[in-house]
Amino acid sequence: MLEGKFDQASLLKKIIDSIRDSVKLCNFNCSQNDGITVQAIDDSRVLLIALKMDPGCFQEFRCDRDMVLGLDLESLGKILKQGNNEDYLTLIAEDNPDSLLIVFEDKKKDRISEFSLKLMDIDSDVLTIDDMDNDCSITMPSADFSKIARDFKTMSESLQIIVTKESVKFKAEGQIGSGSVIFKPHTDLDNPDESIKIDMNQPVNLTFGAKYLNDIVKASTLSSTITIKLTDKAPALFEFKLPSGYLRYYLAPKFED
């Protein structure tokens, strides 16, 4: 049996809102030690989502035996809208379930809402992601990165990320012209999350589809910082930390064959 209780329904709502425009169907893998993990690839096979909600994400978590919950995220999203952000949210599934029970509890009133979501058999490929040695790692405020991704998408289909030891530069070239934003590393002692950290072994210059970056930055609601790991001619990793665990996006770059 699975029973996972979130202190705030908003956490799961934000997570699902961050991924449901990229993937529609996915398997939630549940286990006592790892909590709930998800790996899903978008239809174009350009973007991969790796979610890890450790047991620490939950106020209470038990999972007596490993189970897989096949979920339609659009349907799950509809149910999650029914609860309030501050409600307790509990996911309950029996062994070999054909449905997932979702329970909202208002913390102040005696109100309990229960929903049952039909589960699906989802046949999905699982990709093996080796630990990559990265050429660069950037940690910056997620709001700043989100603004760049959203603004530059109006100018170009692609966003170039150029990292040197001194700076990270985001650049877009479109029909109307071009633009760039440069960030230099800095440490904000009063607001550490406002700091910009650049670790570089080798400079990189990579180009990504603006559409995918726009999907990725939907997760900015989950964490005030984002870590971007880049390697020449390889997929980039965009990571948002959860209270315990992470939401990662692997995005394949664009380049000449």
Binding site: V46, D125, T128, Y250, A252, K254, F255
Partner: peptide, 13 residues
């Protein structure tokens, strides 16, 4: 510039 897919970099299990 052409968009690469992840299959090119990661192996399917």
């Amino acid at each position: 510039m052409s968009q690469q897919t992840l299959s090119r970099f990661f192996t399917v299990r």
